[in-house]
Every structure is written in structure tokens, then in C-alpha cells.
Amino acid sequence: MPSLLKKSEWFKRMNANEINEKLKSGFPEAVVEFKADAVTEPYIVVRPESVRDIAKFLASDPELKFDYLMSLSGVDFNDGNIGVVYHLFSMEKRHRIVVKAKVSKENPEMPSVESVWKSANWHEREAFDLFGIVFKDHPDLRRILLPDDWEGYPLRKDYKVQEYYRGMKVPY
């Protein structure tokens, strides 16, 4: 069982700036951007190809210990890029960080983080299903919410609803 921080020790939490510095010292090449003044929460943009190494680092570093992947969302940024947003939390240290990775719409490939956080398994399947992001080394990359033979990726901004599905007219 993880040792949870007592309320009196919450001041030990790292803030986004410190987390970013820490990450930069480990991966000077991979951190693309750090936006400290983003509305409601700062975020870090990283290179997609090093997502798994960064995830391993974030999860195992004794000062960071991001053991809880709150959410993994696909996003269509509407500028030719789609990407994944990781919301991470540390149960033990009680700090949080948002990490983003962008890939081009034409070649949406990035490594899977399933081996680091098991919860990423279904989240990544969902991002694959609705955005068409291909996660390399995912153990079971199939559509999860839509039928296997559905065409296109509905949450992309340029998605057109298919007219027919197995001979049935799709209503709208």
C-alpha cells in the first residue's frame, strides 16, 4: 500500500515549474514547450516519440512518483495536428501535471504508455477509436466504443459522417 502524505506535509508538493525543470534535466531534447501561464493549469509539451521514456521517468523518479494516470485524452488541435493529453497525479506526493504530445494528422503514431500505467490501455484504445492515433506496442489496439467496421474517426474536426453503414442509412 502506498504511504499517503499527511495533510501537514502537503507543502512538499512540487509545482509545475519544478516538475518541468526536473523533466528538462533528464530529457533536454524532448521537452518542446512549457506554458506556465496557461489558463487554469500549466502544461508541458513533449516530443511524441519519447513519450514512453518520459512516462517511465515520471512514474519512477523518487521525487516525482506520478503513479496515477487520471486521464488520457485525444485532442484534434485543428492545426493539422492531433495529439494526446496526459493528466498525471501522484498519490504519494500529491502533485499533478499536464503533459501534451502532438503528432501530425497524416502520420499519427506515438508509443503506448500502457506498460507504465495499465489504465492507459483503454484510454489509448479510445483515442485510437475516435481520433485514429496509433499507439505502437499497445497490446490490444482495437476499436473500443464504435463497431469494428466503422469508417473514419468521429472526433476529428474534419470528420464526415459515413452515409451508409452495412446498407443502413445513417440518420444524420
Binding site: 502506498p2 499517503l4 496515477y68 494516470l69 498519490m91
Partner: peptide, 17 residues
């Protein structure tokens, strides 16, 4: 925790969260 379970499913395993 690795599966990011929450609610009674997580608390049932003894995690005070």
C-alpha cells in the same frame, strides 16, 4: 492504483483516498 481505479473499488483495497 496502476489501473487508476477510484471510488469504492479503490477504497475497498484499503487505500484511503
Amino acid at each position: 492504483i496502476n489501473y487508476a481505479a477510484s471510488g469504492p473499488t479503490l477504497r475497498g483495497s484499503g487505500v484511503k483516498w
